[in-house]
Write a protein that binds this DNA or RNA. Structure first.
Length: 442
RNA sequence: CGGGGCGUAGCGCAGUCUGGUAGCGCGGAAGUUUUGGGUACUUCAGGUCGCAGGUUCAAAUCCUGCCGCCCCGACCA
């Protein structure tokens, strides 16, 4: 992509409404534009990042055996009357009437709808377990939206819903999602720690939040230092083995980890002082087991092996990709701008032509662009007629992991400079060697 | 929902107290200059001063009402 032909509305000044780093940097880097309180348009750079996050989330859901569907944003109120939540949900739920004066709502979550889908099609225990998920926009009419897309009213959420015959099956499904989340956040380049959580209005008695540590996080977290080094389950993790899953969850939940709401000071202080981590965190995922809370009132039943009809046991599992984008920035930025984890950077490489119009640098850039594309790297080429300083500042702001700087001085000797955004380390390399260097890094 | 604050050019702000032809910086356009960390200069374009009503010879400025946005708290993926 050539920056001169792209749509990247960079802001030089800090927008006054943005206080926290991710909000400020997302606005400055031209990733988002606010439309109303808690409602944002995603501009090209932001959308690319959001899509990269969603892609990884999707791959890991699929790997764990969940099956993707897509439910609408608007839902009929009657479905929610069945579960009793139409009345229970409160003002956070955006209620609308259509032209026929029928009550509809903009979905804040999808337990009711997915239960409706399930019950219409699944009648036998032989079709279980089943886990359906989608990645769709949600709306929760928060009293006070804030911090940009971190706590918006409209947000993108991956929500998965599991259906099992009994509690044991549901616990296995829960553990699969637990393992899947560990893999997902690790792949996103984030250190996420599972913490036992309150189940809130969704209900149920088994629930974990996944928090990533960031100094600007909204909640206080306390955990054992060992969590920081626990190995992430590999690609070959045995999702279908209930025993392996139970052991994995045990490993990840036996040490102390809690947010301030669930914090037990005495238990925390029982940990040797050197192993105590007290930090701030951002919730990026939340999983629940809620048993028959929806299946009973909504009559989502299957015939069991004993020939009896029985309500299915459910769980729901959420990750907010739009929040993950902001959280990643909170966890990784510096004075100059964003420092993207490689996996979710909007482009892999920022190629800077220091003197566009000059034949030699332009030619070298065109060649690098081609070769990088062939090697599978997304490249953003800054070919604007700007001062070098402005280009460096822009590239640092948008935080692409690797910068390749092509200037007339270097190119006269056939060399370009490769800069690592995170460390700032620069290395002068022959043009030929760039792709190999990038391959080694990514 | 309680408390606080802010709405003036695309962005950041001054002007409001004390009413009198709407300004500055950045950004944009044209040009000159410069060319490895946001260059300098010249010229130009760009504003229903959030909206509505009121007071006045005269309102960005004073009064009333409304709307929008942000921050702190309570609440939440």
């Amino acid at each position: 992509m050539r920056l001169s032909r792209y749509f990247l509305p960079i802001l030089r000044d800090n927008p006054k409404e943005a206080e926290i780093a991710s909000h400020r940097l997302m606005l400055r880097a031209g990733m988002i534009r606010q439309e109303a309180a808690g409602i944002y348009s995603w501009l090209p750079l932001g959308l690319r990042t959001l899509d990269k996050v969603s892609k990884i989330v999707r791959e890991e859901q699929d790997r764990a055996g969940a099956i993707e569907i897509l439910m609408p944003t608007l839902q009929p109120a009657d479905l929610w009357r069945e579960s009793g939540r139409y009345e229970a949900y409160g003002k956070e739920m955006l209620r609308i009437k259509d032209r026929h004066e029928r009550d509809i709502l903009y979905g804040p979550t999808n337990e009711e709808m997915v239960t409706g889908i399930f019950r219409s099609a699944v009648k036998s225990y032989r079709d279980l377990p089943l886990n359906l998920y989608h990645i769709q926009w949600k709306f929760r009419d928060e009293v006070r939206p804030r911090f940009g897309v971190m706590r918006g009213r409209e947000f993108l959420m991956k929500d998965a819903y599991s259906f099992d015959l009994d509690r044991a099956g549901a616990e296995h499904s829960y553990a699969k999602m637990f393992a899947s989340y560990l893999r997902t956040f690790a792949r996103l380049g984030l250190k996420a720690i599972p913490m036992r959580a309150d189940t809130g209005p969704i209900g149920g008695d088994l629930s974990h939040e996944f928090l990533i540590l960031a100094s600007t996080g909204e909640s206080e977290v306390f955990c054992h230092r060992a969590y920081l080094d626990l190995p992430t389950p590999g690609e070959d993790v045995a999702f279908d083995d209930p025993v392996a899953m139970r052991d994995l969850m045990k490993r990840w939940t036996s040490l102390y980890a809690a947010t301030s709401e669930m914090h037990d000071k005495a238990a925390f202080e029982a940990i040797p002082e050197a192993d105590r981590v007290s930090a701030r965190g951002i919730e990026v995922g939340h999983i629940f087991y809620f048993g028959t809370k929806y299946s009973e009132p909504m009559k989502a039943t299957v015939t069991g092996p004993d020939g009896k009809e029985t309500p299915v046991h459910g769980g729901s599992y959420g990750i907010g990709p739009s929040r993950v984008v902001a959280a990643a920035i909170e966890a990784s930025h510096d004075e100059a701008g964003i420092v993207w984890p490689k996996a979710i950077a909007p482009f892999d490489v920022g190629l800077i032509d220091l003197r566009p119009g000059d034949g030699a640098t332009g030619e070298a850039c065109a060649r690098l662009e081609r070769e990088l594309a062939a090697a599978g790297f997304d490249t953003l080429l800054d070919d604007r007629d700007e001062r070098p300083g402005a280009k460096f500042a822009t590239m640092d702001l948008i935080g692409l992991p690797t910068h390749v700087i092509v200037g007339p001085k270097g190119i006269a000797e056939g060399k370009v400079e490769v800069k690592d955004r995170r460390t700032g380390a620069k290395e002068s390399l022959p043009v030929d060697a760039v792709v190999a260097r990038l391959r080694a890094d990514h």
